[in-house]
Design a binder for these strands. Structure first.
Lengths: 118, 118
DNA sequence: GGAAGACACTTGACAAAGTATAGCACTATG
DNA sequence: CATAGTGCTATACTTTGTCAAGTGTCTTCC
């Protein structure tokens, strides 16, 4: 198949970001480092199995760093690496778009809710 | 569960965009309207079943518009609605990030990418 | 004129991805 | 001492996406 046409960074980037929970994880981590369960909750209820897979992948990709403070009792923290921090702009863009096109509660008086989610 | 905490447009926006193929579809459509199969190919080989579901969802969300030119022979075109066009900024941000952190082929002969995908 | 291919889907079997739940070894709190 | 919390892992289950094939009509090629 033509999965390997010309190498395209945008395509690859989208591939990375569209994985379920990935952007939520990045967004949560932009506010500062978090522990595993803490992150799971911040992200909106991702279950540990999926979370671990995502985290491993993102670490391997160099987007975040894992620091084990103590093994028993378990204490770990996850924080964004520079490449991850640079995603701030992407999240910002999504943020702006979301506010403009999804936020019906805030500006309901003048504009019709063009986007319904849920 | 706190699935329905305070309504957060960013969260919703991420939810919309992280669905598989969604960003690829938007990106493809930013270059102009496309037909169904055409779009499927542009997007990188999404199968028709999934593509239809995504397209229906995006249309329902108001991100794109479907125009049936003729039913038989079938001829339809999909194009971005204003809300979809506004995603250009998001795609641009992803583009920039991708080029900065994923594009290894452009500047060096090294075959080992710092970020391996797929 | 007849076969082949394109178009926009649809269907149904199947695989992959994500989820729920429980549990481990341990500490801190009440 | 019991309960809740830590970072994870294992198992079973559900949701989601994929593949292959088919539909009816038109266009293109020979």
């Amino acid at each position: 198949m033509d999965a390997e046409r010309e190498y395209c960074p945008v395509h690859e980037a989208i591939q990375v970001l569209q994985a379920k929970w990935t952007m939520h994880i990045v967004r949560a981590l932009l506010d500062g480092p978090l522990g595993f369960n803490e992150l799971g909750r911040a992200v909106g209820g991702c279950n540990p199995a999926t979370l671990k897979v995502r985290l491993d992948h993102l670490e391997e990709l160099g987007l975040l760093r894992r620091t084990v403070h103590s093994q028993m009792p378990p204490r770990t923290s996850y924080e964004l690496a520079p490449a991850g921090v640079d995603l701030q702009r992407v999240i910002d863009a999504i943020d702006a778009w979301g506010r403009e096109h999804l936020d019906v509660a805030a500006g309901e008086a003048d504009e019709e809710p063009s986007l319904a989610v849920g």
